[in-house]
Computed example of a mutant assay.
Amino acid sequence: MFKSKKAKIALFSGIGLVAVALVLAALLLNPNSSQSTTDTEVGLTYTVAKEGSIASATLLSGTVSAAEEQYVYYDGSKGDLETVYVGQGDQVQVGTPLVKYDTSELQATYDTAVRARDKVARQIHDLKTNGQTVTMTGDEATDNSNVASTQRSVDMQLQDLNDSYADAQANVDKAAAALNEATVTSTVVGTVVEVNKSVSRSNTSTNQTVVHVVNQGSLQITGSLTEYDLANIAVDQEVKITSKVYPEQSWTGKISYISNYPEGSQAAAVTGTSGNSGSKYPFKVALTSEVGPLKQGFSVNIEVVNTSKSILVPVTAVVAEEEKNYVWTIVDGKAKKVEVTLGSADATNQEVTAGLTVGDQVITIPNDSLEDGKEVEAYEEPTN
C-alpha cells in the first residue's frame, strides 16, 4: 500500500511536469503567440472626418410683433376730430380714409390764400395790359429819357409782382396740403385693431391713439441683444425660431436690423459703473418661412444658425498633451498620432481647423496603449 501511494504521487507529479513542458515547448516554437493580443489593438471604433457646422452657442429671446402697422395719433394742430371712418375689425387698403379733422379753419385759410394769390395775378395782368402812361413833351431827348425811365419802373413793378405771386402760390400750396392732410389715410393693407374716438385738445397726452392698423400676415421678431452677443451676431444671419406654445414646430428667419445704440435710458449709462450689468441693443428678425400659427405677442426662442463649414470629429477623439491637441487616425491599418488645431465645439462635435482632411479615419475614443505605427483593428461607428 505504501509503495502504491508513492507511485501514484509520482505519476501525478509526472503529468504536471509534462503539461508544463508542453506549454514551454509551444512558446519556444511560436514566440509571437504571447504578443498576439498586445501587438494589435482590437475593440476600437473610428469615425470618418466630415465637413459640417456645429450648433450655435448663441441663443436669444424675442417677441412676435407686426412688421407692418400704422398708428394714427391725435394731432391737435389740425383742429378737432370730425369723423372716424373705420371701426375695429375693418379691413383696409392703402389709401383708405381712416379719420378726418374739422376743416372749417383750414378751408378758411385756404380760401384766404387763394384770394391773395388771385389779387396779385390781377395786378400783373393789369400792368402787362395797360402799362403806365408817359406824357410826351415834344422834345425828343426828353421824351426818350422819360420813356426809358417809365419802362424801367414797369419792369421793376412786374418783377416785384411776380415775386409776390410766387409767395402767394406757396401759401396756397401749404394751405391745400394742410386741407388734404385733414383726412388721414391708411399706409398699410391690414385690419383695424383699435379705435378711440374720445380724444381732444384738452388731453395733455402726446400719444392719443385714434386708429391702429395691423397687417396680421406680416410678422417679425423683436428683442434686445447684450453687448456680449453683438460680437457673434450680424445682419443677414439666419436664425431658427421656436415657441413653447408649439414645441413640435420651428420657423426660419434672418436678422434684419441691429441697433448701434443702446435702448432707452441705458444710453446714458454706457459710461459704465461697477454695477452695470451691460447695455441692451434692439434687434429685429424677419420671418422667411410661413407664419403659420404664430401670433403677435408670442414669446419665442431664437437660435442663430452657424453656416460656417469646417472639419468635424467627435469631442471624445481629441487628446490634450502639454498645451497641444492630438487625434489618433488609422492609415493603412496602423495608428497614427496627428497634431490638430481646434475651433469651436458643441456637446458632440469638435471643429478641427488644421491637421485633418475630409475622409480621414479618426479613432473615436483613443486609449493609452496606442502607439504610432501599431496595427489596429477597428470598426466604423454607425452614423445617426
Rank of each mutant, 00 (worst) to 15 (best):
S4L: 12
K6Y: 10
A7I: 10
A7W: 11
K8L: 15
A26W: 14
L28P: 08
L28E: 15
L29Q: 14
S36G: 13
L44V: 05
V48N: 01
E51H: 09
S53P: 08
I54N: 02
L59Q: 14
S61A: 12
V64G: 02
Q70Y: 08
Y74M: 04
D80H: 05
T83V: 11
V86I: 10
G87F: 06
Q88I: 09
D90H: 04
D90G: 04
P97W: 04
D102G: 01
T103C: 00
E105N: 11
L106T: 11
Q107T: 09
T109I: 03
A116T: 07
R122Q: 13
I124T: 02
T129F: 09
G131A: 04
Q132H: 10
G138R: 07
D143F: 00
D160I: 06
D167H: 08
A170K: 07
D173V: 07
A176F: 04
A178M: 10
A178Q: 14
T183Y: 02
V184E: 03
T185M: 08
V189Y: 12
N196I: 01
T206P: 04
Q208L: 06
V210K: 01
V213F: 04
T226M: 07
A234C: 03
D236T: 13
T242F: 06
W251E: 06
S259Q: 04
P262C: 08
S265L: 10
Q266Y: 00
A269P: 01
G272A: 06
G272S: 11
S274N: 15
S274L: 14
N276W: 02
K280C: 00
Y281M: 02
P282D: 05
K295A: 15
K295M: 14
V300Y: 02
I302Q: 07
I302D: 03
N306H: 02
K309F: 06
I311H: 02
I311R: 04
L312H: 05
T329E: 02
K334E: 15
K336G: 10
T341C: 04
G343H: 03
A347I: 00
D360W: 01
Q361T: 08
Q361I: 01
V362T: 03
T364Q: 12
N367C: 07
D368A: 15
D368T: 13
V376R: 09
E377N: 15
E377K: 15
